[in-house]
Design a protein around this nucleic acid. Structure first.
Lengths: 223, 223
DNA sequence: GATACCACTTACAGCTTTTGTAAGGTTGGT
DNA sequence: ACCAACCTTACAAAAGCTGTAAGTGGTATC
């Protein structure tokens, strides 16, 4: 079932919003504390997030930015702050829609449904540094070009993108690609890294996979 | 370069909108007549369409509906009609955003940019009857499941979806899949149709590819 | 500057998947 | 009942992917 999470500090409004969606058959969840909102949101694993901006602790803007870098569900910002500046900030941080409180339930439902519809097609996509990778087909898109990666290279690319821009150790790569490091030749990683690099070259990303001597690899995409 | 088309009957506003986008480096086009707007829009092949609702001749709603069924670029509705009813109608017809005139240029630009960004990932997708097919990888998505089709079956599926719900003749399929019908065995089509059906079965679409004796095949998806 | 280590490259053979061919079975209309 | 159109299964060639092996190039350390 489609899962919607409400991030809103006003308890009554939160309940009301949850009701609005629940009545339409969505499975809804509300945030319960603002100690570690990221954790709670990721645990709920929503298909759509409704996010307030004025929150206790960290701002909704920060949260929006973090979530867009680490998750792939759409974010609908719903706030009482109605200035153009706020709207532009939210959209720039990756918010997928921006509505002003008070908002008619039907409008909220229609906007939410539209986001869900558009993003269903995109599920299973990892986004990182202007790149997107389909985890089912390993189709990698950059600007207006794309390549299809074979499975092994795709798995490597996936991990590099998920951790971007941090470094990924050789051990972690072995684990993710070949399961537990079952005494594979160390060389096989290098071979596949080379193959991946050659394919990335076709997108103008020849230098994107970087090595740190003795440590591992990381991804660097200049945008 | 990214192409944006403005469909607006007020000539001065049309020019103003085109300017707004052109100044940001987009390649813009405006509709010149309302005799055959579909044709003119398809010829321009935009990456984003800005659409007014109150148009001479047919309504913008009709146009929106038709375009969503026959094209895959995002549509931003920009209109003076500011009722909730109009907004809901537009969104239901598949519009991707709804803004009310007069609209601050920065807001329009931000909303437009967001749509372009979200849809770039989705390019090369064919949508038909609740199904979506990636023409690069032949990943076919239905409800919340998917299959990856091999190339031959993917090409067949593509044509069936593009023509859905009309019938596609054997000759047309041969043309699209094997180029000019170079004296291939007639049987090869049947074999691949069977393979395709078996794979569709995994999505609960076992009966989707239908045959008309002596004519050809067509797609039927109950939604 | 010699050495050891790490990273990179190229070639090749086994494996898997896809694809077309062939042959035989089933369905439906007259 | 017959025939044509359609469907199914099996098999072998072809293509692409994957890991192994062996050799080259670069860099830090002593």
């Amino acid at each position: 079932m489609t899962r919607i999470m409400i991030v809103e500090d006003d308890i009554y409004l939160k309940e009301e919003l949850m009701m609005t969606f629940a009545k339409k058959g969505y499975r809804t969840g509300g945030i319960s504390s603002f100690d570690a909102p990221e954790q709670e949101i990721m645990d709920f694993d929503p298909d759509l997030l409704v996010l307030d901006i004025n929150l206790p602790g960290r701002s909704g803007f920060e949260l929006c930015k973090w979530l867009k870098a680490h998750a792939s569900f759409p974010i609908l910002v719903l706030t009482a702050r109605d200035t153009l500046e706020d709207e532009l900030t939210a959209l720039n941080l990756g918010a997928d829609d921006f509505l002003v409180k008070p908002c008619h339930p039907d409008r909220l439902l229609a906007r939410g449904a539209r986001l869900l519809q558009n993003f269903r097609k995109v599920k299973g996509l990892i986004l990182s540094g202007g790149l997107s990778l389909d985890t089912d087909t390993y189709k990698l898109v950059y600007k207006d070009t794309h390549v299809i990666l074979p499975e092994t290279e795709g798995k490597i690319m996936r991990l590099l993108m998920e951790r971007c821009p941090s470094l990924v150790t050789r051990t972690e790569l072995f684990d993710a690609v070949w399961g537990t490091e079952e005494f594979c030749d160390e060389n096989i990683l290098q071979v596949n890294i080379a193959r991946l690099r050659k394919r990335l070259d076709a997108l103008g990303l020849g230098k994107a996979v970087q090595n740190v001597r003795g440590q591992g690899y990381y991804l660097e995409v200049e945008d």
